[in-house]
């Protein structure tokens, strides 16, 4: 039996400014193109990345984005991990509700990203930080 190939990390980016949110979008786009995603799926992945990168900057004061290429059998995918050491999310259920925002946002970033991606995992502990891991597979 052959082992599945190890995930390959393509980019490790810091998110500390609006400019770096733009950089995250561009690197995610480049990776999605490299993986052969359709234009619609590229757009979905980049939009989700934009939402999650902005959350990291706005709600946690900055953090990190990792872009990884993953493989499952014949299918390849893109995995994005957004992590921060910010205030965390006290009520994850509430945060994932369409339209709920602790600030003046539309409250669509988390719930919308969950719809746009194939897999979505939100880990958070108040006072310790937040990790959002999302994956999309090629069709």
């Amino acid at each position: 039996m052959s082992h599945p190939p190890a995930p390959r990390t393509v980019e490790e980016l810091t998110i500390t400014s609006n400019d770096e949110v733009v950089t995250v979008r561009q690197k995610v786009r480049a990776t999605a193109i490299e993986l052969g995603f359709s234009l619609v799926d590229q757009t979905k992945v980049v939009t989700a990345a934009s939402e999650l990168a902005r959350n990291t900057l706005v709600h946690a004061g900055g953090g990190q984005a990792n872009i990884t290429i993953v493989q499952n059998g014949a299918r390849r995918g893109i995995r994005l991990v957004f992590s921060d050491n910010g205030p965390g999310i006290p009520d994850r259920q509430l945060a994932l509700t369409d339209g709920w925002s602790s600030g003046g946002g539309l409250g669509l970033g988390l719930s919308g990203s969950r719809r746009l991606m194939d897999e979505f995992v939100l880990e958070s502990e108040p006072g310790r930080g937040t990790v959002v891991t999302v994956t999309k597979w090629t069709r």
Binding site: L39, V40, Q42, T43, K44, T47, E51, D98, L106, L108, S111, G112, R115, L116
Partner: peptide, 14 residues
């Protein structure tokens, strides 16, 4: 608006 953008907007919930 590009079609891919429109499709994504709907799924985002906007």
């Amino acid at each position: 608006m590009r079609p891919a953008v429109a499709i994504t907007l709907v799924e985002l919930g906007l």
